[in-house]
Every structure is written in structure tokens, then in C-alpha cells.
Amino acid sequence: MIEINNLTKIYKLSSNQMKKLKTKNSTKVAVDKVSFSAEAGEILGLLGPNGAGKTTTLRCIATLLKPTEGSITVQGHDTVSEPEAVRSSIGFLTNEIKLDPQFSAKYLFHFFGRLHKVPEDVLEERRKELFTYFGIDGFEDKKIEELSTGMKQKAAIAVSLVHDPDIVIFDEPTSGLDIITARSVTDYLLELKKKGKLVIISTHIMSEAEKLCDRLVVIIDGKKTAEGTLENIYEATGTNNLEDAFFELYKENHKEER
């Protein structure tokens, strides 16, 4: 379903960014020769500390960024040469990508539905289903800016699923949510998996990864350091929980700069 081959993403830093990061390098290797694949019907977790390159990897899959090296195919479509085909098969959510604050959730759902060429009657039905599930049906006519953080996030999730995509990519979907709301999101992801969708999430919440993910890809400093089921990872690190395993991997692979 998704094939990532030797993905490398190098950011060119502006002189301003170089000053902020206190570095003399004019480039930043955010993702370094990462390869993995993911299949329908599974939840794959990208696990890594802040700045590991999770968001960058997911943005490359979503065609928003072009790989500096390597390639990505989504359902056989290359993200660089056939970006539109890729975009119509994925639902993507990340913190930095937001819904227009001046519009209502209902209007935006229909707007993005139209951009995805979803027929009006199907759209109406999907809206009712998703809005009811996430409990936004009572707020659907309110402007996004008037909604609470949790409500905004749930509206964004609903909108990202407007075209019933086969592949769902959520970047830290539960960040900033209370446990009740977070639970309704993770439950929905399990639901999607049951329907045979491929779900990819990034997270640095170990308990979430343990409960939710069928397989994990651990990224540290842009490099893939482990891949497999929870058991595979426990085995490889000689531990019995994800937090310890993660610390082991981090100690082994993170080299202090300078």
C-alpha cells in the first residue's frame, strides 16, 4: 500500500534559521535513508522524540514535501510524479494544518467534499455519520474559531476523512486532547482499521503506541532505528515495555552533537 524507499529529506536553512539553531551548517538532514512499508488493515506507529523527523516523513507521504532522495509510492502512485492520485487516496492531519476559523465545520466539510468530488448525497450521509460519532453535530453551524481545542481537532479529523480515504495519516492526533476525547479518536482509528484501512500515526506517547499500533517504526535523529511488532522491539532491546525499549534505542543511537 505504502512503500518508502531510502527516503532522505534535507532542509536548506536560511541564515535566520541557522542563527536560531546556532549551527554553521546550511542544511539540516531531517530524515536520513528511511525505508519501510505499510499494508491495508494495520495501524503503523511512527515513534520518535521531538525533532526526529516524524512530521517530515508524513508530509513527504502526503506530497506536501518532495523527497531530496529516495521515493515513496502510495497504492502504486509515486508521490512526486502523481501527487493528485496520492492525495485523493489519503486523509492527512497534522497540527500545523488548520481549518479556516471563519467558517463552520459543516460548510468546510462540504467545501472539502466538493474539492474531493464527493457526490452531494454521499457527502450529506458521511457528514451525519462522522459528526454524530465525534459529537460535533450540535456545533456544526458554529464558526471554527468559536469551538474548543478538542472540538476543533475533532472537526479537523472529520474533514480529513470527508472522501473516505483508504489511507489515514494522522500526525499526533491526540496531542492537546483530554483522555475522553483522545479515547474517542483512538477508538475511531481502530474502527478504521477494522474497515480495512491503513492507518499511520506519529506519536511520542508510549502507552498510546502500545495499545494502538500493530507495528512500530522508531525514528531517532532522522534514522530508522527499529521496526516491527511490539514483541519484535522488546526482543531486540531486551525489555518488556515500550518506554524502556525506547530509552535503550535512544541511548544507543543518539549521539550528542559537537
Binding site: R87, K98, H116, S160
Partner: peptide
């Protein structure tokens, strides 16, 4: 700046 253009860039629209 608000990050709402990116939402549009995620749709398959040319």
C-alpha cells in the same frame, strides 16, 4: 500564515 492554505493543498485539486 494560518495554515489553512495547506489544508487546501492536501486536496486532489490542481
Amino acid at each position: 500564515e494560518r495554515g489553512t492554505l495547506a489544508t487546501m493543498l492536501l486536496s486532489p485539486v490542481n
